[in-house]
């Protein structure tokens, strides 16, 4: 490999060591204390922030728009665009951090939160919320596609029928056809298609 030719053996070892440490830090399961709430936040306040019942002070989008966490979040649970955050406190606790959320480096959340920063207090509440939610198991999203597809098809047909009833024949009833035909009628009925 071109790259390794240029690097001394010692440097390679160092790199491997650094990467290993990073990996360990990132993926090390965190042993959170079971019943205890992390940080100074409040679980209920955190839940409200997550679900958007409490608006973010700077107007950012509530977490639930893209994420879900735990099984008790709303009737339909949260969004599935972003990762499921049920276990975020165990796996990536360091990302629950205002600096990371607000940084422009994260490609999806960056554009949302760089202009509308989430506040450190709000993140404290979220930490409390996540630390409790992390005790639950991840509930996979419903995979029953059949009823959804069938419902979609039936809904589309119903919509089309309604459209056809509401808008069908509108053009024909408008002045009885094209302007040209109307001009002919107005002129005395000579010629024209009708």
């Amino acid at each position: 490999m071109e790259l390794s030719k240029g690097l001394s053996k010692r440097l390679q070892v160092c790199l491997v060591a650094i990467i290993t440490i990073i990996m360990v830090v990132v993926f090390m399961p965190v042993q959170s204390d079971a019943a205890e709430v992390a940080g100074s936040g409040n679980y209920k306040a955190g839940e409200n922030i997550f679900t958007g019942r409490t608006r973010l002070a700077n107007g950012g989008t509530p977490c639930i728009s893209c994420h879900t966490a735990g099984a008790k979040i709303g009737a339909l649970s949260g969004g599935s665009l972003g990762p499921n955050l049920t276990k975020v406190w165990e796996t990536k606790f360091f990302l629950v951090d205002p600096n990371w959320i607000n940084s422009s480096g994260s490609p999806v959340m960056g554009p949302i939160f760089t202009n509308r920063n989430i506040l450190p207090e709000e993140v404290e509440h979220l930490k409390a919320f996540f630390s409790v939610v992390a005790q639950e198991n991840v509930t996979p999203a419903s995979t029953k596609k059949g009823p959804f597809v069938a419902g979609g098809i039936i809904g589309t047909i119903v919509m089309l029928v309604i459209f056809s009833i509401v808008w069908g024949g509108r053009f024909r009833s408008r002045n009885g056809g094209t302007v040209h035909e109307d001009l002919w009628r107005n002129y005395g009925g000579k010629g024209g298609k009708r």
Binding site: F163, W167, F171, V179
Partner: peptide, 15 residues
């Protein structure tokens, strides 16, 4: 809103 998918007052290509 009611007319958004079909306006009765548009000129057609025949016009």
């Amino acid at each position: 809103l009611a007319n958004i998918f079909f306006q009765p007052n548009l000129p057609t290509i025949d016009d």
